[in-house]
């Protein structure tokens, strides 16, 4: 039973990471109906920027917002410069550009900061807050931050005019344009938000997995799995899906398949959910009119 609890809690902690990435994936999916395969590498790049800022002697509490702002601006810039002109291009072109961004970010990070593994400080205090060995401070902090981000996103979409405009632009671009919403800028905003969420995810994950250019590939896959399990249309579902994937992965690793096939487990989960319940557990079923 102890082992079970231990694994469940450490699964929740991993799940918090996946939930972060899943949240970013869903943000982009909501805005542009595409998976951003470069999401993980963008987050990794943001984390390297944060690391560089800290190397220059800026304290963490200041680096955190600066990095978020830089990432937001970067996300907006990518949408404006690269994706704006090919907005109406076929899906293949979009996938290709995502893959291109993936390799550019990965390779540039390696070129600028080299492929050596770097430690990244945890923003949370060392001293134990809870008297338990089941979950560490950093893991607990991650879960709290993710839930906090989720509620911010909920409030943003539910109660602010810009959030409403973004939802309108995603749901029905034509009508949104007719009532005076700049759909283009709403898309850019969606990219910016996703990049910012990705940056938060990266900065939270880096203390656990260490900072290096390839740190996000596996995590991105789990992030996708979380987003797919939770449903690509629902941010709350993405967080729940991410946590669920984290726990399931850990329990399956302990009791079923061993730790070596964890990525394969993600593959089976993605394919399984897409086959059996394509809308995910919490998503809306989208029916296309032919």
């Amino acid at each position: 039973m102890d082992l079970f609890l231990q694994q469940t809690f450490s699964g929740l902690a991993n799940g918090a990471i996946y939930a972060c990435v899943a949240l970013a994936v869903v943000m982009i999916y909501q805005a542009i109906d595409h998976f951003n395969f470069a999401q993980g590498e963008m987050a990794m790049f943001s984390t390297f920027i944060a690391w560089q800022l800290m190397q220059w002697g800026i304290p963490f509490w200041l680096v955190f917002p600066i990095c978020i702002v830089i990432s937001f601006a970067g996300g907006v810039a990518i949408e404006r410069i690269i994706f704006g002109p090919i907005h109406d291009a076929p899906v293949l072109s979009h996938v290709i550009v995502f893959i291109a961004l993936f390799s550019i970010f990965n390779s540039l990070a390696g070129f600028i900061w080299e492929f050596t593994i770097k430690p990244f400080p945890s923003p949370f205090p060392e001293a134990k807050l809870l008297d338990t060995n089941l979950i560490g401070n950093h893991e607990l902090g991650m879960i709290v931050v993710v839930l906090f981000m989720l509620s911010l996103i909920y409030l943003f979409f539910r109660f602010t005019p810009i959030g409403l405009a973004m939802r309108a632009a995603a749901a029905n671009p034509e009508s949104a344009r007719l009532v005076g919403i700049s759909v283009k800028w709403m898309l850019s905003l969606g990219w910016g938000l996703a990049a910012a969420i990705g940056a938060v995810a990266g900065m939270l994950i880096a203390p656990v997995v260490f900072l290096e250019p390839n740190m996000m590939l596996g995590i991105l896959l789990y992030g996708f799995a979380g987003a797919v399990v939770g449903g690509l249309t629902s941010p709350g579902g993405a967080v729940a899906g991410g946590l669920l994937v984290g726990v399931a992965e850990n329990l399956a690793g302990t009791y079923l398949i061993g730790s070596e096939l964890k990525l394969t487990f993600a593959l089976i989960m993605i394919v399984g959910v897409l086959l059996l319940r394509p809308a995910g557990l919490f998503g809306r079923v989208v029916v296309n009119r032919v």
Partner: peptide, 8 residues
């Protein structure tokens, strides 16, 4: 590492 950036 740079060849991937050139690919991209």
């Amino acid at each position: 590492g740079l060849s991937w950036a050139v690919y991209g």
